[in-house]
Amino acid sequence: MDSFNAIVQVLDSTIRLSVPLLLACLAGLYSERAGIFDIGLEGKMLVGAFAGAAAASVFHSAFVGLGTAVLISVAFAMVHGFASITHRGNQIVSGVAINFVAAGSTIILGQAWFEQGGRTPALQPGERFEAIVWPGAEAIRNVPILGPVYAELISGHSILVYFAFAMVPFTWWVLFRTRFGLRMRAVGENPAAVDTAGISVAWLRYRALICTGVLTGVAGAYLSMVQNGGFVKDMTAGKGYIALAALIFAKWKPVNAMFACLLFGFLDAASIRLQGSPLPIIGKVPVQFMQALPYVLTVILLAGFIGKAIPPRAGGVPYVKER
């Protein structure tokens, strides 16, 4: 029973840890499917996290915080769009720039406004998203197997967790069942064809980037307002890049994205859980190995050793109309 409870706990933290990855991964999915590489996911999450926590603690409302996070994150996405769609700049360069501006400005502004070494004030109850306890969770907690699964895994998360997982089927539906999704995929594969059909490539890509900004904003808000109860400098700590890796791992498909993020979240949860304690058969695994595993797996995947990851064909190429 003890080991079962341990597994449930690891799975529970898997869910918590994979939520920001999942949101960022789906965010990247929108922009990359529309043909815009976005390595600025990290930066957009970071500004989202900062804006969310700052607004929530100033206005004493979690939802104001969430809204601000989304707003600022979308603004950064628009800068990326302005550089890479309107001015046909290098998308990678623009993404790198956004990451730096985000990393620097959150610290500088945080220090200037709150004077707590780059932190925002600790969020009070009501300023952060609380866990939602599902009906009956406490009542059946003691039922073997089913009880802990229902009480720990399904119930007891914040609304943003459910939102993140709801976004998976929603994104699938948008991508494969709506006109916008069809056009978005087309613009990522063959923008000239979309242009010929009389649809604005630029506007379509801007809309995809707005979706990206919204989702990275929520991802950031989750980090600072659910997971942590306040903004800490550089709190994304490479999650944007792991999300990018997950996106490749998922071959740019929403449902796969969920599984990839759960896998990477699980690796993270397991490495925290196992810290220092030996595994059966394998023996003691260095924490650093577990931390590097998502990146190693992605490289192996990219090298084509486990299936082939084929990115959207027009990805990274600015669209130039025939002149």
């Binding site: 001015h87 360069v93 623009s94 720039a97």
Partner: peptide, 10 residues
């Protein structure tokens, strides 16, 4: 970041 943005992407 701003230098990368304005001297690179833009």
């Amino acid at each position: 970041g701003l230098v990368i943005l304005f001297a690179g992407a833009l």
